[in-house]
């Protein structure tokens, strides 16, 4: 039986993003065929892809507000159509800021803006903050990350505006009840963060990643592509992944093997493949 073709991934390169190459590498390692598409290419090209990634960086240098200007690009219109068709869409860091500013998540009332990724709130510091954190995947979620429910994934974050917040009272409780707060900052054992620094930016409910109601669009602040290989994990990271990393000392092939972020990309690519199979079958 011929092997199913690899799902096709488009990594959208807005001017000023800077994580497009390692994101494409991580998608490729997870089984996708990844292309980098410039922001001003023909939006009709998106229809030929099975999944989409908005990478990290500084689109339009965060002018006016992180993600605000890229959210107005024409290619977002086409992306909205693809998302409505159920294709997986992942925004990482600046990509998450674009998805929030464009109303893709949480998407409760069409494309209304329901959320903000506001400046970090941190005791004794301001501005950009970069470290490793632990994320806990929600127990029950409509997201394609559901297959990783309750898992703890360490990865780095690096942002100045990553605080999920909203003016709508009770919104995050609602979202959490619906499983849309897919990723929450936690400690190494997986207990949800009670405060700083485990919750590095003051996000409501320690939210690190929020999806839309259908579950196919995910906006997350930390960087799974920087934790895609075991060798990227710091040797003294607390928890089982740090231990795995130390155990692989001296073994290059193991360090080259999957890290904690790989599972996230694998879940996404798997969801894209499953969706296409279902569409092809009908």
């Amino acid at each position: 039986m011929p092997e199913a073709p690899r799902p096709r991934a488009a990594v959208i390169q807005f001017p000023g993003v800077n994580c497009e190459y390692e994101s494409a590498r991580a998608l490729a390692a997870a089984g996708a065929e990844a292309d980098i598409l410039r922001w001003n290419e023909d939006p009709a090209r998106l229809a030929g892809y099975d999944l989409f990634l908005l990478p990290g960086g500084f689109s339009y240098q965060d002018r006016v507000r992180a993600g605000a200007v890229a959210a107005k690009e024409d290619i977002l219109e086409a992306l909205a159509d693809e998302a409505a068709a159920g294709k997986p869409v992942l925004g990482i860091c600046n990509g998450a800021q674009v998805l929030v500013e464009a109303g893709f998540v949480p998407g409760l009332r069409g494309e209304d803006l329901e959320l903000a990724l506001a400046p970090n709130r941190m005791p004794g510091r301001r501005g950009y903050f970069s470290e490793w954190c632990h994320l806990r995947v929600a127990d029950s979620t409509p997201s394609w990350l559901g297959i990783l429910s309750e898992r703890v994934l360490p990865m780095p974050f690096a942002h100045g505006e990553g605080r999920f917040t909203s003016r709508r009272p009770g919104l995050f409780e609602e979202l959490a009840a619906a499983g849309q707060v897919v990723l929450r900052y936690a400690d190494a054992e997986g207990a949800v963060a009670a405060g700083w620094p485990e919750n590095p930016n003051g996000s409501e409910l320690a939210a690190a990643g929020v999806c839309n109601a259908a579950g196919n669009v995910l906006a997350m602040m930390p960087h799974p592509e920087r934790a895609a290989w075991l060798g990227q994990v710091p040797e003294l990271l607390p928890g089982p992944w740090g231990w795995k990393r130390r155990r692989a000392f001296g073994e290059w092939p193991r360090l080259k093997g999957p890290g904690p972020g790989h599972a996230l990309f694998a879940a996404m690519v798997g969801a894209a493949a499953a969706r296409r199979e279902a569409v092809d079958a009908t």
Binding site: C19, E22, P156
Partner: peptide, 15 residues
């Protein structure tokens, strides 16, 4: 405190 202002991970090559 200083390093945490800098992105040491972008490009994904940090060892």
């Amino acid at each position: 405190y200083l390093y945490q202002h800098y992105d040491g991970e972008v490009q994904g090559n940090a060892c």
